[in-house]
Design a protein around this nucleic acid. Structure first.
Lengths: 215, 215
DNA sequence: GGAAATTTGTTGTAAATGCAACAGAGGTCT
DNA sequence: AGACCTCTGTTGCATTTACAACAAATTTCC
């Protein structure tokens, strides 16, 4: 198997990488766009290429987007996803490659104290810190009570990340509503209001935030 | 310094613990009830005793409770809290003891490959997995669009955790509203409705969930 | 190129929510 | 014991929101 470039393996020499793949039971799997990706139970999934959405549909058919996992995104039953019984599921938004590593094997105390073993655990800490960051951001956005405030909080965040009042949404407006946990039509109504007031200009996924008006 | 029993140090022999405290710059700090706890910048805080709330007040004075950190809870600027500039702050809900460990030191590749070093990193992964779980739960609750659904989702979760339709809220009803990100009076109104319909019985922090009515 | 699916956009209406203001109960502290 | 503070509880009202239903534009896929 050729070497997989992933944050999880960062800092490993070629030699260490070779020994690691023997020692760890890593699997690289491809998922086609639109396919549902099973929630790994005893393993940790790391998105290597492509994009995966973590979603939930509740008993009333209301859909929510929890996370967008890009390259480096980690997921698994031990990592927050409360399993499919609660309505959670994963969907590949594009053709994906996902790396699966046995969780117990990572967490087992290594008798040989291999240097690469602890490197991987450290890298996992970094990936989980990123995930924590993403979840906190989402929480921060949902903490706002009105649709307008949620939109503004999210737009400000995207503008800050791209260091540009012009930016592109990572998903369609329909999905944006699911991410903000608001009704789509209500969101569109509010977006129309904001457009009218000159707060934002928005065309499909392209947004311009007029920050000077937001004070 | 006497040995601190913490998940972070789990699996360490006494000897390893002794060497660890030298190698790592761990600090144990006490925080009085009601005190504000500074957000650690280059370090990771681990709640050893007591309870800490992660909160935010936005520009309109709206308060949100993001997390309740109990024993084992981890926090820090690298772990989601977007720093005080965004209005985040920590408050000790009870007298607390918090363990601070230098983040870089944990993440540095250890030249001696000490066994205890990698044990601590592994333990940190476990603590962060718990945090991810807690954040995901909160997100799941906020994903519901109505106050009633938020309340029910939260109550069901607490009932499931305590394996008992009777359970105790971890905070006051006032704070519950801040956790659910809804207006307090609106929440109380909805609680009154639910009480009237026989869905729940609630007295201060004591709740009984009548699950048979919830289908 | 054309059919099918998805996305964007709009509107009416009933219901839910935020906001403000107030009153009483319960707890805490000295 | 009393002052003070926080928490619980209630209500009116204006606004926001969810829900439903629909039309048009755009993208995807064969």
């Amino acid at each position: 198997m050729e070497k997989v470039e992933s944050t999880l393996f960062e800092g490993l020499t070629d030699d260490e990488y070779a020994r690691m793949t023997e020692c760890f039971k890593t699997t690289l799997r491809a998922h086609r766009k639109g396919e549902e990706v099973a929630i790994p139970q005893g393993r940790v999934g790391v998105v290597h290429r492509g994009r995966i959405s973590v979603m939930k549909t509740d008993e009333d058919g209301v859909r929510t987007i929890f996370e967008q996992l890009a390259s480096g995104g980690v997921f698994g039953a031990m990592l927050g996803i409360a399993a499919a019984d609660a309505g959670f599921f994963l969907v590949a938004e594009e053709d994906c490659e996902v790396l699966y590593v046995d969780y117990d094997h990572i967490m087992k105390r290594c008798p040989k104290a291999c240097a690469y073993h602890s490197t991987i655990v450290r890298n996992l800490v970094r990936l989980m810190a990123d995930k924590t960051q993403a979840l906190s951001e989402h929480l921060e956005i949902l903490s706002h009570r009105t649709t307008r405030d949620k939109l503004m909080a999210y737009f400000r965040m995207l503008a800050a990340k791209s260091r540009n009042p012009y930016f592109t949404l990572p998903f369609s407006q329909t999905n944006l509503a699911d991410y903000l946990c608001v009704d789509r039509s209500a969101m569109l109504r509010e977006l129309a209001n904001m457009r009218r007031e000159g707060l934002v200009e928005i065309d499909r996924r392209n947004v311009k935030l007029n920050l000077h008006k937001t004070l």
